[in-house]
């Protein structure tokens, strides 16, 4: 079951196509990475999903239904550029945003108190937003995004501007929400975060999705059959004639094997030649490498 399904979504602004036939699906309960360089159309896509704008064509299904007026209350959206009313009191502000999401005053109060206790910030209620530090404001922003228990949480660069402690705090909260069944779309261009957090991704560039799928599948698709061996001792003399060596040093060696070849052959050969092997592993490309390769490949065309 997919919480969100996009099918050939197109959005054109005056003289450029921001989203050009993007299709992907976000499985329910997953943490999904929406990746792409700046200006790829991520924000345009998110604005369509959050019903801020409408797609020119294509369909967007949320929980199996075409987007409609009831959906905003099921979505929690934290935009990349954050903002709050500076003069408002923290508690009043959160109640206001929660009520705009359809919560009653009483429920909003309960939920906010829950989060305040969780973050240990009970005494912030009567502070004005402008009295808080930037990191503190981010926490408030996060609470405002999740206070109405959305079934789909969309976070646009959620860790930008956060110190490592707050990053971990928010990351833990994201995991916890995910455990409880919230589906999460994580939009970023920081690949190391994606690899750490997401199970599945879609990569957008110039308004088109250029690849997508489970992170491990994507990595496998782009692997170059490289194997790294760490060893001690002398390499066999005819090593270089037997295998294609990508790189080597005194202690390690990277070998590329051809299609259909078995990596075990390398091991067997080395063992036969009495080389002391410390480790042997396949080198998978990082998402960062794939990302750069793909984006540059498209740009070069």
């Amino acid at each position: 079951m997919n919480i969100l399904e996009l099918n050939k979504v197109v959005k054109t602004y005056e003289n450029h196509v921001a989203v050009d036939g993007v299709s992907f699906a976000v499985p329910e309960g997953s943490i999904f990475g929406l990746l792409g360089p700046n200006g790829a159309g991520k924000t345009s896509l998110i604005r369509i999903i959050t019903t801020i704008t409408r797609a020119d064509s294509g369909t967007v299904l949320l929980g199996g239904e075409t987007l409609n007026g009831n959906h905003p209350s099921q979505i929690g959206y934290m935009p990349e550029e954050r903002g709050l009313y500076k003069k408002m009191k923290v508690g009043d502000h959160l109640i206001y945003l929660a009520r705009l999401k359809g919560l009653s005053k009483k429920v909003a109060n309960q939920e906010i108190n829950y989060w305040f206790e969780k973050f240990g910030i009970e005494d912030w209620w009567n502070k004005k937003v402008e009295e808080l530090s930037k990191g503190m404001q981010q926490k408030i922003q996060f609470i405002s995004t999740v206070v109405h228990k959305p079934s789909l949480l969309i976070l646009d660069e959620p860790f930008s501007g956060l110190d490592p402690i707050n990053t971990n705090l928010i990351k833990d909260e994201i995991y916890e929400l995910n455990q409880k069944g919230t589906s999460i779309i994580f939009s970023t261009h920081r690949m190391e975060q994606v690899e750490e957090v997401c199970e599945e991704i879609v990569l957008i560039n110039k308004g088109k999705n250029i690849l997508g799928g489970l992170v491990k599948d994507v990595k496998n698709r782009f692997k170059e059959n490289l194997f790294q061996v760490k060893f001690e001792g002398e390499l066999p003399a005819d090593m270089e004639s037997r295998f294609k060596i990508a790189s080597k040093s005194d202690r390690d060696l990277t070998i590329q094997i051809g299609e259909g070849e078995d990596s075990n052959e390398i091991l067997q050969y080395l063992v036969r030649n009495n080389l002391h092997i410390i480790s042997f592993e396949e080198i998978l490309p990082t998402l960062n490498e794939i990302f750069i390769k793909q984006v540059n490949g498209v740009t070069a065309e």
Binding site: T50, I52, P72, P79, G83, L84, K86
Partner: peptide
């Protein structure tokens, strides 16, 4: 103010 504050995007994801 709402626009430069960027609160507006949060707001219009609700209303």
């Amino acid at each position: 103010e709402e626009k430069t504050n960027r609160i507006v995007e949060v707001m219009i994801s609700s209303v």
